[in-house]
Design a protein around this nucleic acid. Sequence first.
DNA 1: CTCCCTGCAAATGCTTTGCAACTAA
DNA 2: TTAGTTGCAAAGCATTTGCAGGGAG
Lengths: 144, 144
Amino acid sequence: MNSVSIHNAHPANDVTATLAEHNISPTSQRLQIANVLLNEPMHLSADQLLEKLRHAGEKVSKATVYNTLKLFVERGLIRQINLDPERTVYDSRRATHHHFHEVDTGTLWDIDPDDVAFSRLPQLPDGMEIAGVEVIIRVARKVQ
Amino acid sequence: MNSVSIHNAHPANDVTATLAEHNISPTSQRLQIANVLLNEPMHLSADQLLEKLRHAGEKVSKATVYNTLKLFVERGLIRQINLDPERTVYDSRRATHHHFHEVDTGTLWDIDPDDVAFSRLPQLPDGMEIAGVEVIIRVARKVQ
DNA sequence: CTCCCTGCAAATGCTTTGCAACTAA
DNA sequence: TTAGTTGCAAAGCATTTGCAGGGAG
């Protein structure tokens, strides 16, 4: 598959290949970040990601985390979600999907795209085409 | 400024009443801001709003605009929409409705709630109830 | 050697806050 | 008088950028 000899606990080959598919050269930091994000679908802020990496003993700077996330978003590797101004979150599930958003805590859950279907959608503005449809279901803890 | 009762071209009484309904005392600045936002449904950032007010010859400070918008949101008078971190937008249509979002320019259009209907929605997480459903249709200019 | 990447620190830009002056009742 | 508001300037914070040092080939 590849001639690079990276041997860590994670299926790094997949990640390296994924980076390559998106024209991203696989530096050590990028692999670390991609491993965290891509191994399981998750929503993380830049700071949460940094903390997770540091916790795992990785050596990454804040600037590199930001720059790398920005690069990944530009290259379509991850999605950027903006719930509120102090909370930019990155979503490693590339396929379009939807979200539950718990209003009080800001927690996000994924909604499988198959669990949402429309029986009616509006006409598009002239000369425009759909780039994506996103549904956010805001939920709150039920008061008894 | 002036102790004169308010007599402008707009239906200020409605606005005053609306503020009252939301437990907001009708100061001069709040009336100015509410007039801009409530007279017609619109999406504005804090800065756009400030510029609009200044253009209209109103005397409002930036801090007051921010504080007032925050107050209005807390009191449920307007909604806050977060497109991306440097672009918090305020929406004066209180009823739930949906949006077209032009990706390139960040422009928003309203979608009438009647123009969207679901034939399937996911099961809610345990103990949660729906606080609102929001659909964002991202659109891009068609390339010929 | 050369190119690209990293990381520190400084810069940026939106938003909030401290606080003194002010206003309406 | 008194409670609530305003506005300036300063502070806060997430994110970006400048630039020197570093690593891979």
